[in-house]
Design a protein around this nucleic acid. Structure first.
Lengths: 244, 244
DNA sequence: CGTGTCGTTGAGCTCAGTCAATAAAAGTGG
DNA sequence: CCACTTTTATTGACTGAGCTCAACGACACG
């Protein structure tokens, strides 16, 4: 357990000071492994922890009362999961492993002292959450106002850019370890229609597929179809209090 | 300018300590009035401020490259607006007045020192943002996985409960100061179809309408149609660092 | 008393959903 | 390693919820 995962995540935007890194290093406790399909945190289960993904993909989802499922977001390696559940005693969504996965577990109560003693980390975390909030807002616009093809394209582009931001090598094409049912639950479509849209994107030369592997052939054009806006390029955290 | 609006907003969940209230009281600067339709902050405009709504309704929206608009969220009296734009130099969304409105303006840089010196306010703000993030997630599920009628019902129920939480009297029916076009942009529908859904809700006795005024006749049944889950009831902020 | 905005309703169309059948993988136990 | 089951992907035919286009009425406002 060499470095702090949370420090790595927060450090993506601004360099952390020595005492901050030290404080973060004391946070992480255990590592937990899950098989594909394993539930890290069930909906309505008590929430005592937040997670940092080390390996694999996970997703958050809610089950509507009519039985439908909505995937609220994906959690790729290096990203947080479960932090959105902080203000609730019982989880408002489930967290499930889309692939075999490994996560670091951080205790909620441990966060408490961290926020008190390292206010700058609190501010940075606040910024991080706002960024993720805007990401959901963009997905809201995607579901509310774009076609099925755009939505699928948006998912692909989003994943591609986040994997890249997380340091993964995506040049050789990415493995999309989601079933079409899952893609549907994320984009508000049926699995059948996801399949048709993937076929269309393939026929148009935007993506290539071979045994589950999806390769983005023309990122710019795909981003165009997706109505994608790269928010990450313009992030500005100069308002975060400076390191002491 | 008697009390701090932000203090009122944050104090909804936990009592604030004296020094915290004092710190918040120094924050607020000016009050700004807007006519209906007035733009508080244009998309891509520099973001130097966040806002607290005093009177009237506002909404945040993005314009997609295909010309479609998505309303990302409403801002009712007592609520924050523009805080989601904190991590960007240029606003990722516009803020527009849905009615004549009055807002308090808080400077971004003023927040900086507040977060440094009052870490507990940072934590509380973090919680508040997570709550708003979950609210968008619920809307995502609404757009992605429910029918047009449900979405309109969800909007109505959401507004009703937030108005109530903000201290408004909604017993006599609420005035919904949104055009059907705006409701459509919020719910991912066309204005025409919003109209049909409102008619249906009216015919089923769930709501009553008279000259723009909407009255919720059967809140429980409407909440059922909306697949609504009341997140506010279960909020638990015991993990926030205690006041000194 | 025009003129523009908003709400309302009808008719027809289309995108995405439903149902169904088959193929292709991926597990699973012997 | 093979037989067997379950999951996932794919495609076609049909249906329907929600969109488009269009017309008209009701206001508000200069």
């Amino acid at each position: 357990m060499d470095h702090s995962s949370l420090a790595q995540r927060l450090g993506r935007y601004l360099p952390l000071a020595e005492p901050e890194r030290d404080a973060l290093a004391t946070l992480e406790e255990s590592e937990r492994s899950l098989p594909r399909g394993g539930v890290l945190c069930a909906e309505h289960a008590p929430t005592r922890e937040i997670y940092v993904v080390r390996k694999g993909w996970l997703y958050s989802s809610t089950l509507l009362s009519d039985g439908n499922r909505q995937i609220l977001g994906l959690h790729l390696p290096g990203e947080l999961a479960g932090d959105a559940a902080l203000p609730w005693e019982k989880a408002p969504f489930a967290i499930t492993a889309a692939t075999d996965a490994v996560v670091r577990v951080i205790d909620k109560t441990a966060l408490r002292s961290l926020l008190t003693h390292q206010p700058r980390i609190g501010a940075l975390l606040l910024a991080l959450v706002q960024i993720e909030r805007m990401a959901i807002a963009d997905r809201l616009a995607s579901l509310g106002r774009t076609s099925a093809k755009s939505r699928v394209a948006a998912l692909l582009i989003d994943v591609l850019r986040r994997l890249r931001a997380g340091g993964s090598d995506v040049a050789g094409g990415l493995v999309l370890p989601l079933t079409q049912e899952e893609i549907g639950d994320a984009t508000g479509l049926t699995a059948v229609h996801v399949n048709r849209m993937m076929r269309q994107l393939t026929d148009e030369g935007l993506i290539g597929r071979s045994n589950g592997r999806v390769r983005v052939m023309d990122e710019a054009r795909l981003a165009g179809v997706a109505n994608h806006i790269d928010r990450y390029a313009a992030i500005d955290l100069s308002w975060v209090p400076p390191a002491i």
